[in-house]
Design a protein around this nucleic acid. Structure first.
Length: 1028
RNA sequence: GGACGGUUAGCUCAGUUGGUUAGAGCACCACGUUGACAUCGUGGGGGUCGUUGGUUCGAGUCCAAUAUCGUCCA
């Protein structure tokens, strides 16, 4: 055994070099490898695969820390713990990033490169960022089984995707339909609703007039419609009016009155004014609408201005008599509601949009103009024709593409859908009956509400980066031709082998779905005139399969058998619907079991302004910056410390100037600048936004937050406490008889250790990370360092006591390290290695030999026999006593080196308990106890302090600062009087005495008596002091 | 418009079933550095818990209303 002296262990944990070595050793030893092992129970987490769009930020760091804590804890508990790593191809997000760079750096579009070349470029990007992401995870200490690393676009995921698609298609759960697409005219692709944001912009409400063809006497010559998008009139194929406007208006009014009844007084005036407007509308507009409804029934027609097309006036309930002019223009190809009307009324559909955002030949004279130019021209022309009735100002909620920030042009396109009815129901059932538990439970609402809508899932994307839809199609003019092709396909051997399935989409399109990549079959289909669908699948389609595709599905692999269902999914709340819900329903559909039994939703990390961190806002923080400055353990402990149940984490961040290390607050102004000038040294540094060579020439400033200082300090404290223990273990041995009764302080720390062990485990199992971190922080800092280690110091000098105190120190340190290992893996491993050099037997409860690596050490099992509430209570007398003495010292400004003495008035039991601890009072407060008795000699000049069951008299004969002592007592007196008044008031309250529980009343009485005696003591003291 | 969450010390946050004087870290003040740790130690000052009303012997905690901030879904 070698015991290091102070020089051998530095007084700082050098995380920058140690962590790399430790991590490599863990990997080399296979510490993170999980294998099918029937002797152990599995514990599995699949990582929420980070997008390969860019590097990880602090939100990912939080997410992955929380997972690693669970994995490491369960691994120590003896589970076969598998953390499945991987990344997500992230469809449009990644393609958009690569396309943008292509444009910026080479001034090329994706069409210049072509599909294959672009996809190749994206793979290069993916390789680069995947490496960066996995590197970040490793720096954080994530204990993933890297041998199993997967990617949502790799071959095995592709197999899972095709099998799933084939299965759903065979069950008729996938179909093609019309859907309004959010067309991004800049990227020339459709973007999903989730990739769209709305912005209120200033716009207008134009009232246009369409002439009636051959109006009869008494009939209007024009029909007025109002629109915010006049250019779409070029695609109008009808104008609709409600078939029964009077009834519809009455129903609307009834609804409004009902709302008035339920409304609060504040909201009523608004409804009342609505009702008034309704009355005017009834008088002035309704007769006209009735007339138009009649005309619609008669099949009257209108002439669409500019284009000259004859369009019908139709009766349809979509036209709301309470809205606008009561009539509505119908543009089926650019509005989903109009599309429905067109289906009901059998109207033609005319698309006027080119993919680049210009209007096509259907737009007549404006063909080739952009939509916005077309709008101006249309309005001008309508005005010239005298058909522009009026123009109103109007605030419009305009959709924009999140990727390109340009306005969305909506139009209807063919789209593949997954039918959600049964699938959604299965996922709702799983949560309702508790097979999947969501923590915190309130998040189940959003999940259930969203699934409850059972909206079909549009899965096609007009992209090149993703899983291409495995369908080959051919359209015919007549249904007979389609049927004949279907027959031909169905007689092929591949169909009978279950490799292909065929369906007809009305009226005359044949779709063949192919189960797995099969060039020969594809060639055959091609020769029959079938062409593969261009679209790729929504990125969430492959993500939805992640828990089982990573384990080998569709094969019945041993891993799938053993590790599935996984135990918990840890993620953030914004993808509960997009991802969590879909994993549940796909898991149930494909494997027949839920993918995980628990879901933990953790808080989000916000910046100093309460905004979510994101790369585009420029307020993201690279966890590597934090690791470089504070170390990975501090990052992890800090994030766990902040991970409370209800609060998002607000984290103001600063640039750290690379020239002078001063902090520069990150603000809304500077967070997107490529360079920033330091407030204090006035030199310039660069940021993540630096692109030009000139900007990059400035050194880059890391972005950090002082919210990690708590954790950094804690890691340092832990390191140094361990260092102290190790420096004092010479002669240590676990062997040898210990005294039959341990001294109070030993029993106390062992009791605290057992309690904190129970608490940490139970909190972590409930995903209450902050509580667990706080519990272990308090134990390590306050209980172990501030008291136990301090009390160990005199005992280590005492040959009689040394052996015993070493045993307890080693035992507590060993277990504390294991308890902390899931949260702070590196520093605990580093200490463990040092400790192993001194001794391998440290746990006097189990007598076990310590493991080579703490990562493989057993999770500490609390020793319930050590828990002694009465010991903890007794110890609190000591804590109170030392506090009282220290306060007097401080108030009297007595130099620390100056010893003082005091007497204690207390019971015999208390004397027997505390007198043996006198040496600690000398060491910890430089105070000597002269006497412990029920009637001590009281020093002539003293400061008296009353604490529970004791009166302490500190001898101030040599030190008295009368003024300070009077002021201390007066302050105390004020406080006491306040409390006494409160208690007296309560106890003299008849209803309190008669209704409150007896034990509460007794407690109050006791407390009051105590306070009164303290008040008398303080008053006496003041009186005496004033005489001095 | 709907759902959910926040509002407690200068800042960032805890506060379990309602029960002594509402806690922590940072910041602040005073004192302290010849071996665990100044990324430290000791002590101190500082909040009546967004507002209003209610239930109760007793409310930061339960209920209602209201203000305000945020998130998600329409």
């Amino acid at each position: 055994m070698t015991t290091p002296d102070a020089l051998e262990i530095p007084n700082r944990f050098d995380f920058s070099t140690a962590c790399k070595e430790i991590y490599q050793a863990w990997v080399d030893q296979g510490c993170f490898d999980a294998n099918v092992n029937k002797d152990k129970k599995p514990f599995t987490i699949v990582i929420p695969p980070p997008n390969v769009t860019g590097a990880l930020h602090l939100g990912h760091a939080l997410n992955n820390t929380l997972q690693d804590v669970q994995i490491r804890m369960h691994r120590m508990m003896g589970f076969e713990a598998l953390w499945m790593p991987g990344t997500d191809h992230a469809g449009i997000a990644t393609q958009a990033v690569v396309e943008r760079r292509l444009k910026e750096l080479e001034n090329k579009t994706r069409h210049d490169l072509g599909r294959d070349k672009l996809v190749e470029r994206i793979w290069q990007w993916k390789d680069q960022y995947e490496a960066r992401i996995l590197g970040q995870l490793k720096s954080m200490g994530c204990s993933c089984d890297w041998r199993r690393t997967r990617f949502t676009l790799d071959d095995r995921c592709a197999q899972a995707v095709r099998s799933t698609f084939f299965d759903l298609f065979s069950k008729s759960l996938i179909y093609r339909g019309k859907r309004l697409v959010n067309w991004d005219t800049y990227l020339q692709t459709a973007v999903s609703d989730d990739e769209v944001f709305t912005e209120t912009v200033h716009g207008s409400f134009w009232h246009l007039q369409y002439p009636v063809i051959d109006p009869k006497p008494g009939e209007p010559t024009h029909v007025t419609i109002a629109t915010t998008r006049p250019e779409t009139m070029l695609g109008d194929t009808a104008v609709a009016v409600h078939p029964h406007p009077t009834e519809a208006l009455a129903r609307f009014e009834a609804g409004l009155r009902e709302k008035w009844n339920d409304a609060s007084a504040k909201d009523r005036p608004a409804i009342e004014s609505q009702l008034e407007l309704l009355e005017i509308r009834r008088r002035e507009l309704l007769p006209q609408l009735e007339l138009l409804a009649q005309m619609a029934k008669e099949g009257r027609q209108l002439r669409l201005p500019i284009i000259g097309r004859v369009i019908p006036l139709v009766a349809d309930e979509w036209a709301k008599p309470e809205m606008g002019s009561g009539c509505v223009k119908i543009t089926p190809a650019h509005d989903p509601n109009d599309y429905e009307v067109a289906i009901r009324c059998k109207l033609p559909m005319i698309n006027i949009l080119n993919s680049d955002g210009t209007v096509n030949e259907n737009a007549g004279p404006y063909s080739g103009l952009t939509m916005s130019k077309t709008r101006i021209k249309v309005v001008e022309e309508m005005d010239n024709l005298g058909l522009l009735a009026k123009t109103e100002d109007h605030q419009i909620e305009l959709k924009h593409s999140d990727r390109s920030k340009t306005p969305i042009e909506p139009y209807l396109a063919d789209q593949w859908f997954v039918k959600m009815d049964q699938l959604a129901q299965s996922a709702m059932d799983a949560v309702n009956d508790g097979r999947v538990k969501i923590y915190p439970p309130r998040y189940a609402n959003g999940y259930l509400d969203w699934l409850g809508e059972k909206r079909d899932w549009p899965v096609g994307r007009q992209l090149w980066w993703g899983h291409q839809i495995p369908i080959w199609s051919r359209s015919f003019d007549s249904p007979e031709q389609a049927k004949s092709l279907k027959f031909q396909l169905e007689s092929m051997s591949e169909r009978s082998a279950g490799l292909m399935t065929v369906q007809i989409e009305e009226p005359a399109t044949v779709h063949a779905c192919v189960r797995q990549s099969d060039p020969a079959l594809e060639l055959k289909l091609h020769s029959l005139g079938l062409v593969r669908q261009e679209d790729v699948l929504d990125t969430w389609f492959s993500s939805a399969l992640w828990p089982h595709s990573t384990l080998g599905w569709p094969e019945k692999s041993p891993e799938l058998e053993y590790f599935y269902p996984t135990n918990v999914l840890i993620t953030s709340r914004d993808i509960i619907t997009l991802w969590v819900a879909r994993m549940v329903l796909m898991g149930l559909n494909n494997v027949g079991e839920v993918p995980f039994s628990e879901v933990f939703i953790h808080p989000k990390i916000l910046d100093g302004y309460g905004e979510t961190m994101s790369k585009s806002k420029g307020n993201g923080v690279d966890p590597i910056d934090v690791i470089d400055k504070f170390g990975p353990d501090a990052l992890r402990f800090g994030l766990s410390w902040l991970c409370t149940e209800t609060q998002d984490v607000r984290m103001p961040v600063q640039y750290e100037c690379p020239h002078c290390e001063a902090k520069v607050n990150q603000t809304k102004e500077n967070r997107q600048s490529p360079t920033v000038e330091c407030d204090s040294c006035k030199k310039t540094f660069s940021t993540q936004w630096a692109e030009s060579a000139e900007d990059k020439a400035h050194p880059k400033a890391p972005v950090v937050s002082d919210r990690f200082e708590v954790a950094r300090n804690f890691v340092n404290k832990l390191w140094n406490a361990s260092r102290f223990v190790m420096m004092n273990l010479s002669g240590y041995s676990l062997a040898g008889q210990s005294s039959p009764t341990l001294p109070l302080e030993d029993q106390w720390i062992l009791s605290q250790l057992a309690s904190v062990t129970i608490k940490v485990e139970s909190e972590l199992k409930q995903y209450r990370y902050a509580e667990a971190a706080r519990a272990v922080y308090d134990f390590a800092w306050d209980h172990f360092c501030s008291f136990y280690v301090e009390m160990a110091k005199p005992r280590l000098q005492d040959p009689e006591a040394r052996h015993q105190v070493q045993r307890v120190l080693a035992h507590v340190l060993d277990r504390m390290l294991r308890l902390l290992h899931p949260i702070t893996p590196f520093v605990t491993e580093a200490i463990w290695q040092q400790l192993n050099k001194i001794t391998r037997t440290r746990d006097f409860v189990t007598n076990e030999t310590s493991t080579d690596w703490i990562v493989r050490a057993p999770w500490p099992v609390p020793n319930h026999e050590h828990i002694k509430p009465e010991i903890e209570k007794q110890f609190s007398h000591f804590v109170a006593l030392i506090g009282a003495v220290r306060e007097i010292r401080s108030r009297q400004n007595i130099a620390p080196k100056q010893q003082i003495s005091f007497s204690v008035k207390c019971s015999e039991e208390m004397r027997d308990l505390l007198a043996p601890m006198s040496k600690f009072l000398e060491a910890m407060a430089n105070a000597r106890a002269d006497e412990w008795s029920d009637n001590p000699v009281i020093p002539s000049v003293n400061a008296a302090v009353s604490i529970p069951e004791m009166d302490v008299y500190v001898d101030l004969t040599q030190f008295i600062d009368v003024a300070a002592e009077i002021s201390r007592n007066e302050k105390l007196l004020v406080n006491l009087v306040k409390q006494i008044q409160g208690k007296e008031g309560r106890l003299s309250n008849e209803s309190f005495v008669s209704r409150a529980p007896a034990d509460i009343i007794e407690k109050e009485r006791q407390a009051l008596a105590d306070l009164v005696s303290q008040r008398r003591a303080a008053e006496d003291a003041i009186e005496k002091l004033k005489k001095l």
